[in-house]
Simulated assay, not measured.
Amino acid sequence: MSDINQLIAQVYAEAKRESFPIDEPVYQAAGLDPKMPILYGGNLESPLCFFARDLGKDEVLVQQPLYGAAGRHVRQGIYRTLFQKEPNRSTDLSGVLEHVLLTNTVPYKPPGNKAYSENVKKRFRPFLEQLLIRHWQGNCIITLGNEAFKWFSPYAPKGEAAQFFAGSDRYTSSFPITLTAQDEQGQRHERSVTILPLPHPSPLNQKYYAQFPQLLQQRLTSIFS
């Protein structure tokens, strides 16, 4: 069993250890075990990670993060930047997964469209730390929305993340942090990363929805150019 499969098995064991809210009918409709995590999609050797809040129905059906409406905006932006041409509805966007890692604060779909509680996020945080520090090889993380950015607050001095996010330039500037984690033997691991926040590309986010493609383009150009 590879290291990443061991990590997935550990997440699965933790999910079975004690119940927490999962949108089980969506998994059952897809013929999937609700306790089996959808931990990541894409390439662990890519320089860039997209970090979103949690999974939706579309993501469960295809077993990939960021596959629904918001994910399509992201994948179209990556395609546009990498291949210098405009995608259309029939464009195969699967090739962008070779260039990014996709993951969420919790590798499960919550009931409805409600964010997971802080207790659930805390419970699965160690596994996300292992993914980002020990398995992924990159150092740039684009967060989508407030909840995704707040997940990284504990790795900065108290109050610094909130102060940064309150700034009017939060979607064009960067926030460097050092992620830390402990493995099963208690050994400490670190990775210095740069957090690049973006708003969530939802039509409900009226203030930034129209701006999202340009903001994303700026972020991607700075990484891939």
Results as ranks from 00 to 15, higher is better:
136 W>C: 03
159 G>N: 08
90 S>F: 12
57 K>M: 11
112 G>A: 08
6 Q>R: 14
169 D>N: 13
137 Q>Y: 02
21 P>D: 01
222 S>W: 03
191 R>G: 01
123 R>E: 09
184 E>Q: 11
137 Q>A: 13
24 E>F: 00
95 G>A: 12
154 P>R: 02
198 L>S: 00
184 E>W: 00
147 E>P: 10
173 S>H: 10
125 R>M: 10
97 L>E: 15
33 D>N: 14
18 E>H: 06
11 V>N: 10
199 P>R: 07
163 Q>S: 15
25 P>C: 09
90 S>W: 08
198 L>Y: 04
45 E>W: 03
173 S>M: 00
12 Y>T: 13
207 K>R: 15
99 H>Q: 13
58 D>G: 13
104 N>P: 09
57 K>L: 11
162 A>K: 11
101 L>H: 01
198 L>R: 03
161 A>M: 03
221 T>P: 02
128 L>E: 01
84 Q>W: 05
46 S>G: 12
222 S>R: 11
186 G>P: 09
113 N>C: 07
154 P>M: 00
48 L>G: 05
131 L>H: 07
21 P>K: 04
39 L>N: 04
27 Y>M: 05
109 K>T: 10
13 A>R: 13
181 A>I: 03
184 E>Y: 03
221 T>M: 14
89 R>Q: 14
207 K>L: 15
223 I>Y: 08
89 R>P: 04
25 P>T: 05
69 A>T: 10
48 L>Q: 01
122 K>D: 09
4 I>Y: 07
45 E>V: 01
202 S>H: 11
179 L>I: 03
112 G>F: 08
13 A>D: 14
190 E>W: 01
166 A>Q: 15
48 L>Y: 02
